[in-house]
Each structure stands twice: as C-alpha cells, then as structure tokens.
Amino acid sequence: MKSLAVIALIVVSGALGDIFLARGMKQVGSIDTLALKELLQIARRVLFSGFILLGIGCMAVAFFSLVTVLAWEKVSVVEPATSLSYVINTLGAKFYLKEEVDLARWIGTVLVTLGIACLCL
C-alpha cells in the first residue's frame, strides 16, 4: 500500500514535471538561433522561468520518490508502472496545455506506454 502511494507519486510528479517544462518553454518561445549572445539571453529567461523551476522541482520529487521505493520494491515492478506517466503527460497536454491531441497521438501514447511496460518487465 505504501509502495503503491509512492509509485503514484512518481508517476504524477514525473508527468507534471514535463507538463510544467512545456508550459515554461512555450513562454520562453521557440529557440531558432545558434548565436551565442542570443542563446545566453534565452538561457537567462529559462533559468528565471517559474514554470521551468516548478517542472524541475516536480522531477526532483519524482527522482527521490523513485530512489525511496526502490529500497522496498524490485525495479521490475516499479519501472513498468512509471510508464503510465506518458498517459498523464498526454492528458495534461490536452486539458492543461490545450494542445490539439489527435487520434494518432493517442494511439502512439498508448502503444509507447504498453511498450515501455513490456520492455521493463
């Protein structure tokens, strides 16, 4: 039960991490330059973006939860379960980031999730 709760935390915080990173990078804007001066300005905006920092924070929570749960459970149990974060990512993309998620992306997400689960079992 305790493991289940921590695995849920890994899945949700991992997905939230990517969702917030995506939101932050959309605010920073499309990176199309390779000029050093402009890249440094972009790096500055990235490092001072609240959403990016929130995303990195969520990923840190996911990482430390993973390390914790690995002390009690086998990797072969934990890793397949974490593939569920791909589904949450796509849900977050549709409902929070308001992306246009078509059928192809849904089918792809489900296949990738099942595939990662198989790969890790």
Binding site: D18, M25, K26, S30, T90, L97, G108, V112
Partner: peptide, 15 residues
Amino acid sequence: HLAMLSKADLSFVMP
C-alpha cells in the same frame, strides 16, 4: 529536450 518543447507540442515530443 527544452529546445524541442520550445517549438513543438508536449503530446508530440514525449511519445
């Protein structure tokens, strides 16, 4: 990863 997210949808980049 950040560069990809700056120009493409998360629901494309992740899968």
